[in-house]
Amino acid sequence: MRFLVTGTAGFIGFHLARRLLQAGHEVVGVDGLTDYYDVALKRARLALLEAMPGFSAHAFMLEEPGAFTALMAGTRPEVVVHLAAQAGVRYSLQHPEAYVSGNVVGTFQVLEGCRSHTVRHLLFASTSSAYGGNRAAPFRETDRAVWPLTIYAASKLAGEAMAHSYAHLWQIPTTAFRFFTVYGPWGRPDMALFLFTRKILAGEPIDVYDHGRAVRDFTYIDDLVESIARLVDIPPPPPGADPVSAADTLSPVAPYRMVNIGGGRPVSVSAMIDALEDALGCRAVRHLRDLPPGDVAQTEASTALLRDLVGYVPQTPIEAGIPAFVAWYREHYRTDP
């Protein structure tokens, strides 16, 4: 099939595009190559994709009026996977305008493109941050998500709402998924595992929020990509179809559903740092801090719907995933073991 994937220079988009290309599909990639974090890392990811047959890269910002629709008309993909976004919870406290532009306006342009050209399936990346002030664990897709704590979470909820309305009005089969703390090789430098690794190797102290008590549902990148790849072949049916189980979020008025992608086995940040120290072979200097605004004390995915749909849930423990990340980091940045 021909896929159009947004955010192919990003962490998740790169891994998904590589997986699809390895399976023999064609991938049309879009990325704005913003400087939110190291552009050299993004270009290194793209270089690997560009060396693979079946990949074509297009560089523009999604919020540019008409650009995505024109690309849809020129490439006519069967499946669109929308992963591009302005990410980062704490960055949104200082730069909220980037989230409205990238995540709201950019997603609107993607939806307009899918309206102009019929696709078999639109898959859209949201976030576990959408659960916001919800305190019931595990987070179930059927829980109300009406208390976002940051503009990042609010922008993703807006994208979910817009995607549902487009699915209803123009019968676009749409699956939105909420990611839970994704990590692994080629990861994002702004995320805790990457930051901690760099600082520990440099002998610098690390800031550990909530005194290490915060709990996260860490999801290894290969498991996430496997889940997305399986969901591609399960577009939501038209209204009136029976749900697959009691956990299903199938809309009664649109071919639309929401799915968590997480392992459902959360661990504390302190335990994550312990595993990182073991993989690095050195100890961190931990500066314990209070939980900052916008952060939550715990995330945990309910995996029931994902399992019911595709018969699979993320399963890589941090004891295996973190050493894999460290091995990549040492090779990419040429640090001595």
Results as ranks from 00 to 15, higher is better:
10 G>T: 08
11 F>D: 00
15 H>E: 10
18 R>E: 14
23 A>K: 15
27 V>Q: 04
28 V>W: 02
30 V>S: 09
36 Y>G: 00
42 K>D: 00
50 E>F: 08
50 E>I: 15
55 F>N: 01
60 F>A: 03
61 M>T: 11
62 L>R: 10
75 T>A: 11
75 T>I: 04
93 L>A: 14
94 Q>T: 15
108 F>M: 11
108 F>R: 12
112 E>R: 11
120 R>I: 02
121 H>Y: 06
122 L>H: 11
127 T>M: 00
128 S>Q: 12
135 R>Q: 15
138 P>S: 07
143 D>I: 01
161 A>N: 11
164 H>A: 09
167 A>N: 10
171 Q>E: 14
174 T>C: 05
175 T>F: 05
177 F>G: 07
179 F>I: 12
179 F>Q: 07
184 G>Q: 05
187 G>Y: 04
189 P>Y: 06
197 T>P: 04
198 R>P: 01
205 P>H: 08
207 D>M: 01
210 D>H: 10
215 V>S: 05
216 R>K: 14
219 T>S: 14
233 D>Q: 08
234 I>H: 13
235 P>D: 04
238 P>L: 14
241 A>Y: 06
249 T>Y: 06
249 T>K: 07
259 V>R: 06
260 N>M: 12
264 G>N: 10
267 V>A: 02
271 A>I: 02
272 M>P: 05
280 L>H: 05
283 R>S: 12
284 A>Y: 08
305 L>K: 13
317 P>V: 05
323 P>N: 10
323 P>M: 09
326 V>I: 13
331 E>M: 06
332 H>G: 01
332 H>R: 12
333 Y>Q: 01
